[in-house]
Design a protein around this nucleic acid. Structure first.
Ligand SMILES: Cc1cc2nc3c(=O)[nH]c(=O)nc-3n(C[C@H](O)[C@H](O)[C@H](O)COP(=O)(O)OP(=O)(O)OC[C@H]3O[C@@H](n4cnc5c(N)ncnc54)[C@H](O)[C@@H]3O)c2cc1C
Length: 601
DNA sequence: ACCCAGGTTGCCTCC
DNA sequence: CGGAGGCAACCTGGG
């Protein structure tokens, strides 16, 4: 294998597990990991190892497609035959798009209709029963070093050059799976472990509970449940390829059919388990249809234009986001940072964001709560900022699902009922009436009376002291005079919800999309009331929601990128979701590939 | 053209 | 405490 995968614990586990499975079939073999970017390494390898065939799984992520096209061209040049397999989704996403008239699938019924045209979902391919010997692996060529300063995962790496310092075959010269430390990643805090063995065990346990599997209704599962969670937690395994979605689908469907025959109750898509996998395919197909533009507002025909705060900067040459954003209002940057670090002063939101940061997985409805809160139902900050934080923190990060769901929650695509707005108080109370989830992830509040735990700033000082905590400040200070501190809320929610609702209403009536001329040329501002929510003042703005065209192309240096460069009082810590230059929204995180600057075309 | 039902997962008040 | 209906009102698809 050529190293180019996200590098969290579940990834390392997945690689070790697959390596063991290979060795079981042939004791001379294992997973051989080469420390270099595919595009620079493979041409050298084709030669040195006299390679005749290259086999890999098709990837419809825009970034993956670009890389794979490059690799295929190099293989062709070297006379190497390429074989690709499509098994990441239920149906091949390009086939789904074709069956849907070349358009992105925007609802489950559209996906189902396209799927019906394509026929049965293929059965998963059996694991091999034997494997050939690995052959000779000479290293008679130079390792190409990464260019400095382009690693999107910089803030998770302690020593980003380390990976390469041991040479292509790693520290022991044996091509073994690199542990996180070799890659310079900080030790992982997640309790979730990866690998096919665990994935199959987990799935077996789920399937053995036929009532759970057969009557699963997603909206009825609790976002506050932990150890164990209320849903399958299969998403990281599906992402890393440790579990086949087709295997999962057919196995779950078998249980449903069996219950049907026995006249027992069953659930139906979209709420059923198989329905969940259909959503996954829907987002993959939408992404396959739109490519890079799927991951951003600008130039995306499918994404509604809303004048969000903290809009993405645009490279006008490539029409892609640069990875940096404009701070149109310093207060919104502070809200964003406090959201990202679980210090909003809304315990339900903070508990979720801290579970995300610490464990890397949160329940679907928890994702709804915090995504709605950041965008249309609280801060009115661009969904693209939220998607970037999720990309950094999720162990199940999947570009198509992450982007698509952020659009759903922000009512920019897939979903439009913006008047259905989650409350950070009421929604939490519904699922966690005693506050157990909050006590677990916001331990400052663990002794707070349940009467106040969702709005602790409303607790009388005497109750706060009884619980050993003072509600005060902005979350920077953790303790004072032996009492823990928990921040005041960043804003009054009912007020902010109304502001957002008004903003959404007017943005919907303006009715612009990411590829409309007005969004491309900045005249979108004319269509918005100066006093409306978001950076709407004036008649001429920048591309895609920026306030100005100046410095919009992302090629310049970082320090003077903001039109209002007042210093905020939120320090960007090393693991803050700081933005990075020259990065496309849609590619898998933490890849070694990404640590090389792409050649200018 | 128009109406109407449906859309995985809202909140609040009233009975 | 649980369910129904109001709230204000989005879009798509079918008839
Ligand atoms: C803002 C936001 C961001 C998200 N980002 C991601 C992401 O980066 N990666 C990701 O896999 N999912 C993402 N999701 C979708 C969903 O929340 C997770 O897939 C789900 O919570 C994973 O938990 P599970 O495996 O227990 O799901 P289950 O409910 O057990 O579902 C089974 C499988 O179906 C798939 N699935 C379920 N719901 C969705 C969905 N809405 N969209 C796509 N696939 C789904 C997952 O692969 C999941 O493992 C996001 C949702 C939101 C609202």
């Amino acid at each position: 294998m050529v190293l180019g995968q996200p590098l969290r614990i579940p990834c390392e586990d997945s690689m070790n597990d697959v390596s063991k499975s290979i060795t079981k079939l042939n004791h001379k073999s294992k997973m051989f990991v080469l420390r270099e970017r595919a595009v620079s390494l493979l041409p050298k390898l084709f030669n040195a190892w006299r390679i005749t065939h290259l086999v890999f799984e098709k990837d419809t992520d825009a970034y993956g497609r670009e890389r794979d096209n490059e690799v295929m061209a190099l293989a062709k040049k070297a006379g190497v035959e390429v074989i690709t397999k499509s098994g990441r989704t239920l149906w091949d996403s390009d086939d789904v798009v074709k069956a849907h008239g070349g358009k992105p699938t925007m609802s489950i019924s559209q996906l189902q209709a396209a799927g019906a045209k394509l026929g049965e979902i293929a059965a998963p391919i059996e694991a091999p029963k034997s494997l050939p010997d690995p052959g000779e692996m000479s290293l008679d060529f130079e390792q190409t070093q990464p260019e400095p300063k382009s690693d999107i995962n910089e803030h998770f790496r302690e020593d980003r050059e380390k990976t390469y310092s041991f040479g292509i075959a790693g520290p022991n010269g044996d091509f073994s799976v690199p542990p996180l430390e070799e890659l310079g990643m900080k030790p992982a805090t997640t309790p979730h472990r990866g690998g096919e063995t665990i994935a199959l065990e987990m799935l077996d346990e789920i399937l053995a509970d036929e009532e759970y599997t057969g009557t699963f209704e997603k909206p009825k599962t609790s976002p506050a449940a932990f150890e164990p969670q209320s849903t399958c937690l299969t998403s990281p395994y599906l992402h890393f390829g440790a579990l086949s979605c087709r295997y999962f689908y057919h196995k779950a469907d078998e249980v449903v059919q069996k219950r049907r025959k026995a006249k027992k109750s069953v659930s139906e898509p979209p709420t059923s388990l198989t329905g969940q996998l259909l959503f996954r395919d829907m987002y993959f197909a939408a992404q396959a249809a739109l490519g890079f533009s799927f991951g951003q507002t600008y130039n995306n025909p499918n994404c509604r234009f809303i004048p969000w705060h903290l809009p993405s900067k645009i490279d006008l040459n490539t029409k892609l986001v640069t990875g940096d954003y404009e701070i149109d209002d310093e207060e919104k940057e502070i809200w964003f940072q406090r959201w990202a670090h679980g210090k909003t002063g809304f315990p339900w939101i903070d508990a979720i964001m801290r579970q995300l940061r610490y464990e890397g997985w949160i329940h679907h409805l928890a994702r709804h709560s915090v995504a709605c809160f950041l965008t249309r139902g609280g801060c009115y900050i661009s969904w693209e900022r939220g998607a970037e934080v999720f990309e950094d923190l999720l162990i199940d990060h999947e570009a198509a699902s992450n982007i698509g769901n952020w659009q759903w929650l922000s009512c920019t695509a897939f979903f439009s009922q913006f008047y259905r707005c989650y409350s950070p108080v009421a929604f939490g109370k519904k699922w966690d009436p005693d506050g157990g989830f909050i006590r677990k992830f916001v331990p400052e509040l663990k002794d707070m009376d349940k009467k106040y735990i969702f709005e602790p700033h409303k607790a009388p000082i005497s109750d706060q002291k009884k619980a050993g905590v003072l509600i005060k400040g902005d979350g920077e200070e953790a303790e004072r005079n032996g009492l823990k501190l928990y921040p005041m809320p960043i804003f009054d929610f009912p007020t902010q919800r109304d502001i957002c609702l008004q903003g959404m209403k007017s943005a919907y009536s303006v009715g612009l999309h990411g590829n409309d001329q007005k969004v491309l040329d900045g005249t979108w501002k004319e269509a918005f009331d100066d006093n409306g929510e978001g950076p709407t003042e004036g008649r001429k703005g920048g591309p895609g929601g920026l306030t100005t065209f100046e410095e919009a192309d992302g090629a310049e240096e970082a320090s003077h990128g903001h039109p209002t460069p007042k210093k905020g009082n939120v320090e960007r810590s090393s693991d803050s979701p700081k933005s990075t230059r020259g990065r496309k929204r849609e590619h898998s995180q933490s890849t070694l590939d990404a640590s090389f600057k792409k050649k200018a075309k």
